[in-house]
Simulated assay, not measured.
Amino acid sequence: MKKLMNSAESVLADSLAGMALAHPDLRVDPETRVISRAGGPVPGKVGLVSGGGAGHEPLHGGFVGRGMLDAAVVGEVFTSPTPDRILAALRAADSGRGILQIVKNYTGDTLNFAMAAELAEDLGLTVRTVVVDDDAATGIPAGAQGRSTGRRGTGATVFVERICGALAEQGADLPAIAEAGERVNAASRSIAVALAPCTVPAVGHPGFELADDQMEFGVGIHGEPGLRTEPLRPVAEIVADALAVLLDQLPAGGDDRTIVMVNGLGATPLLELYVVLNEVYAVLRKAGLTIAHTLVGNYVTALDMAGVSLTVCRADEQMLGLWKTPVSTPALRWGC
Protein backbone atom coordinates (compact mmCIF):
# COMPACT_ATOMS: atom_id res chain seq x y z
CA MET A 1 0.00 0.00 0.00
CA LYS A 2 1.38 3.40 -1.02
CA LYS A 3 -0.50 6.41 0.36
CA LEU A 4 0.42 9.98 1.28
CA MET A 5 -0.28 9.77 5.00
CA ASN A 6 1.46 9.70 8.35
CA SER A 7 -0.54 6.73 9.60
CA ALA A 8 -3.85 5.02 8.98
CA GLU A 9 -4.98 6.18 12.42
CA SER A 10 -4.29 9.88 11.79
CA VAL A 11 -5.23 10.22 8.12
CA LEU A 12 -8.74 11.63 8.74
CA ALA A 13 -7.66 14.13 11.41
CA ASP A 14 -4.72 15.27 9.28
CA SER A 15 -6.95 15.63 6.22
CA LEU A 16 -9.50 17.74 8.10
CA ALA A 17 -6.71 19.97 9.43
CA GLY A 18 -5.49 20.52 5.88
CA MET A 19 -9.00 21.27 4.67
CA ALA A 20 -9.37 23.94 7.36
CA LEU A 21 -6.15 25.59 6.19
CA ALA A 22 -7.22 25.48 2.53
CA HIS A 23 -10.71 26.90 3.09
CA PRO A 24 -10.94 29.70 5.67
CA ASP A 25 -14.58 30.26 4.67
CA LEU A 26 -15.35 26.96 6.38
CA ARG A 27 -15.32 26.04 10.04
CA VAL A 28 -13.81 22.60 10.67
CA ASP A 29 -14.29 21.21 14.18
CA PRO A 30 -11.63 18.56 14.86
CA GLU A 31 -13.57 17.10 17.79
CA THR A 32 -16.99 16.59 16.20
CA ARG A 33 -15.61 16.39 12.63
CA VAL A 34 -18.30 18.79 11.52
CA ILE A 35 -17.58 21.09 8.56
CA SER A 36 -19.85 24.15 8.50
CA ARG A 37 -20.04 27.66 7.08
CA ALA A 38 -17.64 29.93 8.92
CA GLY A 39 -20.32 32.56 9.44
CA GLY A 40 -22.65 30.12 11.17
CA PRO A 41 -26.28 29.42 10.23
CA VAL A 42 -27.80 31.80 7.67
CA PRO A 43 -30.61 33.72 9.42
CA GLY A 44 -34.07 32.85 8.13
CA LYS A 45 -32.87 29.95 5.96
CA VAL A 46 -33.66 26.24 6.29
CA GLY A 47 -30.46 24.40 7.19
CA LEU A 48 -29.09 21.57 5.05
CA VAL A 49 -26.94 18.79 6.53
CA SER A 50 -25.39 15.71 5.01
CA GLY A 51 -22.48 13.42 5.77
CA GLY A 52 -21.06 9.95 5.79
CA GLY A 53 -17.77 8.15 5.94
CA ALA A 54 -14.53 9.68 4.73
CA GLY A 55 -12.99 8.45 1.50
CA HIS A 56 -15.58 9.98 -0.86
CA GLU A 57 -14.06 13.46 -1.08
CA PRO A 58 -15.13 16.03 -2.05
CA LEU A 59 -18.43 14.54 -0.81
CA HIS A 60 -19.68 15.84 1.62
CA GLY A 61 -17.52 18.57 3.15
CA GLY A 62 -16.54 19.93 -0.25
CA PHE A 63 -20.16 20.89 -0.85
CA VAL A 64 -20.59 23.12 2.20
CA GLY A 65 -21.27 26.72 1.22
CA ARG A 66 -23.68 29.04 -0.53
CA GLY A 67 -26.15 27.16 -2.72
CA MET A 68 -25.55 23.76 -1.12
CA LEU A 69 -24.99 22.52 2.43
CA ASP A 70 -24.77 24.39 5.70
CA ALA A 71 -22.92 21.59 7.46
CA ALA A 72 -21.45 18.15 6.81
CA VAL A 73 -20.23 15.53 9.25
CA VAL A 74 -17.44 13.06 8.51
CA GLY A 75 -17.03 9.53 9.86
CA GLU A 76 -14.01 7.27 9.67
CA VAL A 77 -13.16 5.95 6.20
CA PHE A 78 -16.26 4.24 4.75
CA THR A 79 -17.92 4.37 8.20
CA SER A 80 -21.00 6.35 9.21
CA PRO A 81 -20.54 9.24 11.65
CA THR A 82 -22.02 8.64 15.09
CA PRO A 83 -25.38 10.15 16.13
CA ASP A 84 -23.81 12.62 18.58
CA ARG A 85 -21.61 14.06 15.83
CA ILE A 86 -24.53 14.22 13.42
CA LEU A 87 -26.45 16.09 16.13
CA ALA A 88 -23.58 18.59 16.33
CA ALA A 89 -23.93 19.17 12.57
CA LEU A 90 -27.68 19.68 12.90
CA ARG A 91 -27.16 22.26 15.63
CA ALA A 92 -24.48 24.01 13.54
CA ALA A 93 -26.96 24.37 10.67
CA ASP A 94 -30.02 25.46 12.65
CA SER A 95 -31.33 29.00 12.20
CA GLY A 96 -34.81 28.30 13.51
CA ARG A 97 -36.60 27.34 10.27
CA GLY A 98 -35.88 23.63 10.41
CA ILE A 99 -33.17 21.37 9.00
CA LEU A 100 -33.13 18.92 6.12
CA GLN A 101 -30.90 15.85 6.38
CA ILE A 102 -29.72 14.34 3.07
CA VAL A 103 -28.74 10.73 3.75
CA LYS A 104 -27.30 8.05 1.47
CA ASN A 105 -29.10 4.72 1.71
CA TYR A 106 -26.67 2.61 3.70
CA THR A 107 -27.69 0.87 6.92
CA GLY A 108 -25.26 2.70 9.19
CA ASP A 109 -26.06 6.11 7.74
CA THR A 110 -29.85 5.72 7.85
CA LEU A 111 -29.81 4.38 11.41
CA ASN A 112 -27.42 6.98 12.80
CA PHE A 113 -29.05 9.95 11.08
CA ALA A 114 -32.47 8.76 12.30
CA MET A 115 -31.19 8.60 15.88
CA ALA A 116 -29.62 12.05 15.51
CA ALA A 117 -32.93 13.46 14.25
CA GLU A 118 -34.69 12.09 17.34
CA LEU A 119 -32.08 13.66 19.61
CA ALA A 120 -32.45 16.97 17.77
CA GLU A 121 -36.24 16.93 18.06
CA ASP A 122 -35.88 16.32 21.80
CA LEU A 123 -34.00 19.64 21.86
CA GLY A 124 -36.80 21.40 19.98
CA LEU A 125 -35.30 21.32 16.48
CA THR A 126 -37.43 20.44 13.46
CA VAL A 127 -35.77 17.86 11.18
CA ARG A 128 -36.83 16.25 7.90
CA THR A 129 -34.87 13.58 6.02
CA VAL A 130 -34.44 12.75 2.35
CA VAL A 131 -32.85 9.35 1.70
CA VAL A 132 -30.95 9.05 -1.59
CA ASP A 133 -31.21 5.61 -3.25
CA ASP A 134 -30.17 5.96 -6.88
CA ASP A 135 -27.78 3.05 -7.57
CA ALA A 136 -29.17 1.08 -10.52
CA ALA A 137 -26.75 -1.78 -9.81
CA THR A 138 -28.74 -2.51 -6.67
CA GLY A 139 -32.09 -1.63 -8.21
CA ILE A 140 -33.40 -5.15 -7.94
CA PRO A 141 -36.34 -6.24 -5.74
CA ALA A 142 -35.65 -5.99 -2.02
CA GLY A 143 -34.62 -9.36 -0.63
CA ALA A 144 -33.20 -10.59 -3.93
CA GLN A 145 -29.60 -11.88 -3.79
CA GLY A 146 -29.70 -11.59 -0.02
CA ARG A 147 -30.41 -7.86 0.01
CA SER A 148 -33.10 -6.14 2.02
CA THR A 149 -32.06 -2.49 2.08
CA GLY A 150 -32.92 -1.40 -1.47
CA ARG A 151 -30.79 0.71 -3.80
CA ARG A 152 -27.59 2.26 -2.48
CA GLY A 153 -27.17 6.03 -2.36
CA THR A 154 -24.42 7.28 -4.68
CA GLY A 155 -23.96 10.06 -7.25
CA ALA A 156 -27.46 11.54 -7.08
CA THR A 157 -26.54 12.79 -3.60
CA VAL A 158 -24.74 15.69 -5.31
CA PHE A 159 -27.85 16.53 -7.33
CA VAL A 160 -30.10 16.46 -4.25
CA GLU A 161 -27.68 18.62 -2.26
CA ARG A 162 -27.42 21.12 -5.11
CA ILE A 163 -31.14 21.46 -5.91
CA CYS A 164 -32.21 21.54 -2.26
CA GLY A 165 -29.40 23.96 -1.44
CA ALA A 166 -30.43 26.33 -4.21
CA LEU A 167 -34.05 26.25 -3.11
CA ALA A 168 -33.07 26.89 0.52
CA GLU A 169 -31.04 29.94 -0.53
CA GLN A 170 -34.21 31.34 -2.12
CA GLY A 171 -36.01 31.13 1.23
CA ALA A 172 -38.26 28.12 0.61
CA ASP A 173 -39.70 26.34 3.64
CA LEU A 174 -38.71 22.90 4.90
CA PRO A 175 -41.60 20.88 3.38
CA ALA A 176 -40.99 22.40 -0.07
CA ILE A 177 -37.25 21.69 0.07
CA ALA A 178 -37.79 18.11 1.25
CA GLU A 179 -40.33 17.53 -1.53
CA ALA A 180 -37.87 18.84 -4.12
CA GLY A 181 -35.16 16.55 -2.79
CA GLU A 182 -37.45 13.54 -3.04
CA ARG A 183 -38.33 14.44 -6.64
CA VAL A 184 -34.66 14.79 -7.62
CA ASN A 185 -33.86 11.43 -6.05
CA ALA A 186 -36.81 9.72 -7.75
CA ALA A 187 -35.76 11.17 -11.12
CA SER A 188 -32.11 10.03 -10.85
CA ARG A 189 -30.21 6.80 -11.35
CA SER A 190 -26.48 5.96 -11.20
CA ILE A 191 -24.17 3.09 -12.07
CA ALA A 192 -20.42 2.60 -11.65
CA VAL A 193 -17.67 0.57 -13.30
CA ALA A 194 -14.23 -0.08 -11.79
CA LEU A 195 -10.98 -0.78 -13.60
CA ALA A 196 -9.07 -1.26 -10.34
CA PRO A 197 -10.24 -1.65 -6.71
CA CYS A 198 -9.57 0.75 -3.85
CA THR A 199 -7.49 0.21 -0.72
CA VAL A 200 -8.79 1.29 2.69
CA PRO A 201 -5.84 2.65 4.73
CA ALA A 202 -6.71 0.65 7.85
CA VAL A 203 -6.98 -2.57 5.82
CA GLY A 204 -3.90 -2.18 3.66
CA HIS A 205 -4.93 -4.27 0.67
CA PRO A 206 -7.49 -3.93 -2.17
CA GLY A 207 -11.10 -4.88 -1.49
CA PHE A 208 -11.25 -7.28 -4.46
CA GLU A 209 -8.98 -8.46 -7.25
CA LEU A 210 -9.03 -7.63 -10.94
CA ALA A 211 -6.66 -8.84 -13.63
CA ASP A 212 -5.14 -6.27 -15.99
CA ASP A 213 -7.65 -7.23 -18.70
CA GLN A 214 -10.74 -7.20 -16.43
CA MET A 215 -13.26 -4.67 -15.12
CA GLU A 216 -15.94 -4.80 -12.41
CA PHE A 217 -19.46 -3.79 -13.49
CA GLY A 218 -21.82 -2.21 -10.94
CA VAL A 219 -19.44 -1.47 -8.06
CA GLY A 220 -20.33 0.48 -4.92
CA ILE A 221 -18.59 3.56 -3.54
CA HIS A 222 -17.29 1.69 -0.48
CA GLY A 223 -15.20 -0.67 -2.57
CA GLU A 224 -17.95 -3.28 -2.85
CA PRO A 225 -17.55 -5.71 -5.76
CA GLY A 226 -20.06 -5.26 -8.56
CA LEU A 227 -22.68 -7.35 -10.28
CA ARG A 228 -20.10 -9.17 -12.35
CA THR A 229 -16.47 -9.27 -13.44
CA GLU A 230 -16.02 -9.05 -17.19
CA PRO A 231 -13.34 -8.43 -19.82
CA LEU A 232 -12.19 -4.85 -20.31
CA ARG A 233 -13.70 -3.45 -23.51
CA PRO A 234 -13.71 -0.21 -25.51
CA VAL A 235 -15.36 2.65 -23.65
CA ALA A 236 -18.21 2.91 -26.18
CA GLU A 237 -19.31 -0.61 -25.24
CA ILE A 238 -18.87 -0.01 -21.51
CA VAL A 239 -20.97 3.16 -21.58
CA ALA A 240 -23.66 1.57 -23.75
CA ASP A 241 -24.04 -1.37 -21.35
CA ALA A 242 -23.94 0.82 -18.23
CA LEU A 243 -26.53 3.25 -19.55
CA ALA A 244 -28.76 0.39 -20.68
CA VAL A 245 -29.04 -0.73 -17.05
CA LEU A 246 -29.42 2.86 -15.81
CA LEU A 247 -32.01 3.95 -18.37
CA ASP A 248 -34.06 0.81 -17.80
CA GLN A 249 -34.65 2.05 -14.25
CA LEU A 250 -34.87 5.79 -14.97
CA PRO A 251 -38.49 6.92 -14.55
CA ALA A 252 -40.22 7.51 -17.87
CA GLY A 253 -42.30 10.48 -18.93
CA GLY A 254 -42.00 14.14 -18.20
CA ASP A 255 -39.20 16.30 -19.54
CA ASP A 256 -36.57 14.72 -21.79
CA ARG A 257 -33.89 17.13 -20.57
CA THR A 258 -31.31 15.70 -18.20
CA ILE A 259 -28.54 16.64 -15.82
CA VAL A 260 -25.61 14.25 -16.19
CA MET A 261 -22.57 13.60 -14.03
CA VAL A 262 -19.54 11.67 -15.25
CA ASN A 263 -17.78 11.06 -11.96
CA GLY A 264 -14.26 9.80 -11.38
CA LEU A 265 -13.96 7.29 -8.57
CA GLY A 266 -10.64 8.68 -7.35
CA ALA A 267 -7.93 7.53 -9.76
CA THR A 268 -9.30 8.30 -13.22
CA PRO A 269 -7.82 11.19 -15.23
CA LEU A 270 -9.99 13.83 -16.84
CA LEU A 271 -8.65 12.75 -20.22
CA GLU A 272 -10.59 9.51 -19.83
CA LEU A 273 -13.66 11.06 -18.19
CA TYR A 274 -14.16 13.34 -21.20
CA VAL A 275 -13.96 10.30 -23.46
CA VAL A 276 -16.74 8.77 -21.38
CA LEU A 277 -18.87 11.92 -21.61
CA ASN A 278 -18.57 11.89 -25.40
CA GLU A 279 -20.03 8.38 -25.47
CA VAL A 280 -22.73 9.29 -22.93
CA TYR A 281 -23.93 12.09 -25.21
CA ALA A 282 -24.21 9.66 -28.13
CA VAL A 283 -26.16 7.04 -26.16
CA LEU A 284 -28.57 9.52 -24.58
CA ARG A 285 -29.20 11.18 -27.94
CA LYS A 286 -30.24 7.81 -29.39
CA ALA A 287 -32.53 7.33 -26.39
CA GLY A 288 -34.28 10.63 -27.14
CA LEU A 289 -32.79 12.48 -24.16
CA THR A 290 -30.91 15.78 -24.22
CA ILE A 291 -28.27 16.93 -21.76
CA ALA A 292 -28.99 20.36 -20.28
CA HIS A 293 -26.16 20.44 -17.72
CA THR A 294 -23.08 18.31 -17.05
CA LEU A 295 -20.57 17.69 -14.30
CA VAL A 296 -17.31 15.97 -15.20
CA GLY A 297 -14.68 15.26 -12.55
CA ASN A 298 -14.23 13.78 -9.09
CA TYR A 299 -17.32 14.45 -6.96
CA VAL A 300 -18.17 11.15 -5.21
CA THR A 301 -15.01 9.08 -4.97
CA ALA A 302 -14.04 5.72 -3.51
CA LEU A 303 -10.52 6.54 -2.30
CA ASP A 304 -8.12 5.43 -5.05
CA MET A 305 -10.50 3.35 -7.16
CA ALA A 306 -9.95 3.60 -10.90
CA GLY A 307 -13.19 3.81 -12.82
CA VAL A 308 -16.25 5.95 -13.43
CA SER A 309 -19.82 6.37 -12.26
CA LEU A 310 -22.61 7.80 -14.38
CA THR A 311 -25.57 9.68 -12.93
CA VAL A 312 -28.56 10.82 -15.00
CA CYS A 313 -31.41 12.95 -13.67
CA ARG A 314 -34.52 13.51 -15.76
CA ALA A 315 -34.91 17.12 -14.71
CA ASP A 316 -38.05 19.24 -14.66
CA GLU A 317 -38.18 23.00 -15.25
CA GLN A 318 -37.72 23.87 -11.57
CA MET A 319 -34.66 21.64 -11.21
CA LEU A 320 -33.03 23.09 -14.33
CA GLY A 321 -33.63 26.64 -13.12
CA LEU A 322 -32.30 25.97 -9.63
CA TRP A 323 -29.21 24.23 -11.00
CA LYS A 324 -28.07 27.45 -12.71
CA THR A 325 -28.33 29.65 -9.61
CA PRO A 326 -25.09 30.73 -7.88
CA VAL A 327 -23.16 28.16 -5.88
CA SER A 328 -19.93 28.67 -3.96
CA THR A 329 -18.36 25.64 -2.30
CA PRO A 330 -14.84 24.15 -2.41
CA ALA A 331 -15.87 21.57 -5.02
CA LEU A 332 -18.65 23.29 -6.96
CA ARG A 333 -18.66 26.95 -7.90
CA TRP A 334 -20.36 29.13 -10.52
CA GLY A 335 -22.28 32.38 -10.79
CA CYS A 336 -20.49 33.99 -7.82
Score class of each variant (00 low, 15 high):
1 M>T: 09
2 K>T: 14
4 L>K: 12
6 N>W: 12
6 N>Y: 09
11 V>K: 00
14 D>P: 09
17 A>K: 14
22 A>N: 15
22 A>K: 03
24 P>H: 15
28 V>L: 14
31 E>C: 11
34 V>W: 09
37 R>V: 08
40 G>K: 11
41 P>H: 01
41 P>V: 10
42 V>W: 06
42 V>R: 13
43 P>K: 00
47 G>I: 07
51 G>L: 00
55 G>D: 11
67 G>N: 00
68 M>G: 00
74 V>F: 05
75 G>T: 14
76 E>H: 12
77 V>A: 05
80 S>L: 09
81 P>W: 13
83 P>M: 05
83 P>W: 08
84 D>G: 13
85 R>Y: 06
88 A>V: 06
90 L>T: 11
98 G>D: 02
98 G>F: 05
98 G>T: 08
100 L>A: 10
104 K>D: 07
105 N>W: 02
107 T>E: 12
110 T>W: 00
111 L>C: 06
112 N>L: 00
115 M>F: 06
116 A>W: 03
129 T>G: 03
131 V>N: 08
136 A>F: 03
136 A>G: 07
136 A>M: 12
140 I>Y: 08
140 I>D: 01
141 P>Y: 00
142 A>L: 08
148 S>E: 05
149 T>H: 07
152 R>G: 05
158 V>M: 10
173 D>H: 00
176 A>Q: 01
177 I>V: 10
178 A>C: 01
181 G>L: 08
181 G>P: 10
182 E>A: 05
184 V>G: 04
186 A>E: 01
186 A>K: 07
189 R>S: 10
190 S>T: 11
196 A>N: 11
196 A>C: 08
199 T>Q: 03
205 H>T: 04
205 H>F: 09
207 G>F: 06
214 Q>T: 07
217 F>C: 09
218 G>K: 05
219 V>Q: 02
223 G>W: 01
226 G>K: 01
232 L>F: 08
236 A>E: 01
238 I>V: 15
244 A>G: 14
246 L>N: 00
246 L>P: 13
247 L>G: 11
252 A>T: 12
253 G>D: 08
257 R>G: 09
257 R>L: 04
260 V>A: 07
261 M>S: 14
276 V>G: 10
280 V>D: 13
281 Y>S: 07
283 V>W: 07
283 V>E: 00
286 K>Q: 14
287 A>L: 10
289 L>D: 03
291 I>M: 02
292 A>P: 10
293 H>E: 06
295 L>A: 08
301 T>Q: 01
306 A>E: 07
311 T>E: 00
311 T>N: 07
315 A>N: 05
319 M>R: 09
319 M>A: 15
319 M>Y: 07
319 M>E: 14
320 L>I: 14
323 W>G: 08
332 L>M: 15
333 R>G: 14
